[in-house]
Amino acid sequence: MTGTETPFLELRNVTKTYKIKQGLFGETKSLDALKDLSLKLSKGDVLGLVGESGCGKSTLAKILLGLEAPTSGQVLVDGTPIGGHDRLALARRIQPIFQDPYSSLNPRKTIQDLIALPLRVHNVGDEASRTKAVREILDVVGLPSRVLTNYPSQMSGGQRQRVAIARALVMRPQIVICDEPTSALDVSVQSQILNLLGDLRSEFGLTYLFISHDLAVVEHLATQVAVMYLGRIVEETDAAALFDNARHPYSQALLKSVLTPDPAMEVPDTQLGMAYPNPIDPPSGCHFHPRCPRVTSLCKTQTPRPVVDTQGLVECHLHDPQANMTPARQEALT
């Protein structure tokens, strides 16, 4: 975000609107899963994307992967809009690892076939060189070659997630989009997968977008963090800055709700009185205002603008030097 080099991957003012049919008479409403959202990913970054269920994390991932088209806005790779790229060539460079190691693998295919599939789709090499590539990648993710003839049902959750990782990496991508890659796994398996992702990053110079509900995991792995709320990024900064000194009241509440295994501490009071709002009918002004412990009258009517300063991006009146809420701001910053 701070560098001037062309970002590897960029979303520029992306909006994704879904049409939803409601009620008996099929009245159609629109739901903005992403709202005028901009995001940059630089080479070697691990960008952690966090936020509550339904805030738009997976939608963002699908757009980056080209699985969904934005309603408006652009996706740029190396500064060139995605439309100008050869789609297949792009898919080779960006690969996904999804949450559920159970449903993302076709149960009727062997592990060999599953991992070789992207190579076949992209017409890479001949049968012999593909087999060699599959064996190599299997070794990288720490699976023995005897599993090649197995079916997914014969493997444990952790092994299946390794297969999913092998399949993502067999194309030697530069960017890997991980959507909750470990949330279906037990902690003893999760730590192996997280270690593997870390090793692969240093070995192959990978760039990750890492989506997770688990903030302790994000804190451990990410170099940058973006916090999402109702289709917007409300704060983005380096991981250390966010975890040591979050500025947005929502980021603060999220961090506060992390239960570190410290028996001397109680369950925290997040002060987030109300539940997550309905995205079809978002609150006025700052979308976070009904739950914000720092809300002022300005917040109810005026949408805060993104402010970028030395500490990163934040979208909250409290941190906007031009926002007309001086007394509260004064109070907040003292």
Binding site: S188, G198, A240
Partner: peptide, 25 residues
């Protein structure tokens, strides 16, 4: 002890380091 070493503990586990594992099933 193995379980406790598998989870990243903010403030305790150094960021980016390898986590403990319990190999096997």
């Amino acid at each position: 002890r193995g379980l406790l070493r598998c989870i990243p503990q903010p403030g305790k586990t150094e960021r980016g380091t390898r986590l403990g594992t319990i190999p096997g099933i």
